[in-house]
């Protein structure tokens, strides 16, 4: 259970991320659900690490992100059909891209896992499907715009809820969702009706996009 009174425990120097992290926790309403709170804490650490990579080129922050995400990216690529050697090589490239693009990460629109997924997915399309991946035009973004922490926390909660909802789906349905993302289903086989709470996340992201458009005017 998190309250605004609880001190933020730093076992390692989070540098500039400390203030960032405190703000996120103080903006409260993380919910009383313990698992969601833990997920939110962890996510806060990852976001702080991305900042340290971007601002301080911090290799120890990178090493921690690597330790958590690289084995998952590799698993994702192997489930998508890459052999071990290729998956290892691609994972290293994905993690190097994370370093290079750390400042592009927007916590009001994505979790760190989501952002890494999009990098891995693009690499997969390129490497395994041997095709270019046209991406939507980037949105205009301003210099160092400070994300609204309330928005960040809300998206984080919705993402944690989605994660639980996926875990609670009947096995058969969960398999279908995972198969879609591992590329085991052709586009005509993908049934988008997942029964998962995606609508609330969409609404959050939609608001973040509106703010972004407004700020850029």
């Amino acid at each position: 259970m998190l309250t605004s009174k609880q001190p933020v425990q730093e076992t390692d120097a989070l540098g500039g991320a400390i203030a960032y992290r405190k703000r996120a926790i103080n903006s409260e309403s993380l919910g009383t659900n313990g698992m969601q709170a833990v997920t939110a804490m962890k996510e806060d650490t990852w976001v702080g690490h991305l900042r340290r990579i971007h601002e301080d080129r911090d290799q120890s922050a990178f090493a921690e992100l690597f330790q958590h995400f690289a084995p998952r990216v590799k698993a994702f690529l192997m489930k998508s059909g890459a052999n071990e050697t290729l998956a290892e090589e691609c994972t290293q490239e994905v993690m190097a891209t994370l370093w290079r693009k750390a400042q592009m990460f927007d916590p009001t629109r994505a979790s760190v896992a989501t952002w890494i997924f999009t990098i891995a997915r693009n690499r997969k399309v390129d490497m395994l499907r041997k095709q270019r991946r046209p991406e939507p035009e980037d949105l205009p973004w301003g210099p160092e715009a400070e994300p609204d922490q309330a928005d960040v926390v809300m998206l984080r909660q919705e993402t944690a809820r989605l994660s639980e909802a996926l875990a609670q789906l009947p096995q058969k349905q969960r398999d279908l969702v995972e198969k879609a993302y591992f590329g085991d289903l052709s586009h005509s086989e993908i049934a988008a009706e997942t029964g998962l709470p995606l609508g609330t996340i969409k609404s959050r992201i939609r608001l973040a996009l509106e703010k972004l458009r407004h700020d850029m005017k």
Binding site: A75, F76, A110, L166, Y181, K202
Partner: peptide, 14 residues
Amino acid sequence: EAFDTLGGVVLEAC
């Protein structure tokens, strides 16, 4: 981006 979020959740669960 909501579907990308689902992709991130699937990745995290790998």
